[in-house]
Design a protein around this nucleic acid. Structure first.
Lengths: 142, 142
DNA sequence: GTCCATGCAAAGAGTTTGCACGCCT
DNA sequence: AGGCGTGCAAACTCTTTGCATGGAC
């Protein structure tokens, strides 16, 4: 699989230093199954490119989502997280203790049987958020 | 089942006109499986109580969620919706066309098998969001 | 009479947008 | 050389908060 930066170049994206840095961040985070927030991206990008602006980060993230290269993930709070793992179907575990998010392979979810007002609804995708305690937080419960 | 207003009185809540109106809205919306936003609540409450303030609506909604009388539901955008249907486990269908939200009875979701970094995660709840097209929007697709 | 919910207004977080400049191609 | 991405700053949306008043009990 080519890197995100390579894929964007292939797509004909204008590869500015800013975009290169942001893409590189997601190439790293993909292998670690990390889910960065816009602020995380800005913070890490500033470390390399001190003059990068918040607007550029948001613009680029939005474009990457539109291009299908990132998944925008919401887990209940009002913060959007960006998931570079778009090529393997997976769901998310959210720790109610520390807020950490983990990936799990998607198991087949039983299709709902919409009746009543929902009759005729055509399901195209199912997204599952498992809530619970990660190993560390579960340990502290005892 | 007593009405929400009755339950709040039983709990010893100070029943102001504002709280009475908001509770009444959810008694109605519960029977219709509607998922009101804070703005919906404000708008409908203003129609009855012109001087009710946005802050009171938000405060009351927050208190109702804390009391376990409402569920705060997020379906991906940054708007919180309030679901009075707290006593029957259910998931949500979200129409990607018109944004409508429908309830479906919760079917058993297979437990994930967290491995890797997620090892030891203790799952306590699973929340499913089905995305697709409601009957009306599916009809327009043809 | 006491306390707490209310209204007001301002603050706050996260995100988006308009515009002129400068860099990538 | 031309167009698009950038930085800046302001605007925007949703939500929360501090404080004085007044209504519920």
């Amino acid at each position: 699989m080519p890197t995100l930066t390579e894929r964007l170049t292939t797509r004909g994206w204008r590869m500015t230093p800013q975009r290169r840095v942001i893409s590189a961040l997601f190439d790293v985070s993909a292998s670690q199954h990390v889910h960065l927030t816009a602020d995380d991206v800005l913070e890490q990008a500033v470390a390399v490119l001190p003059d990068i602006s918040r607007a550029t980060v948001y613009n680029t993230l939005g474009e990457l989502v539109d291009a299908g290269e990132l998944l925008a993930v919401s887990v209940g709070d009002r913060i959007t997280r960006y998931d570079p793992n778009v090529h393997t179907e997976h769901h998310h575990l959210v720790c109610t203790g520390c807020g950490a998010i983990f990936d799990v392979p998607a198991l087949p979810v039983p299709p709902p049987s919409p009746g009543g007002e929902a009759g005729g609804f055509v399901v195209e995708a199912a997204e599952v958020i498992y809530r619970g305690r990660c190993a560390r937080c579960a340990g502290q419960d005892a």
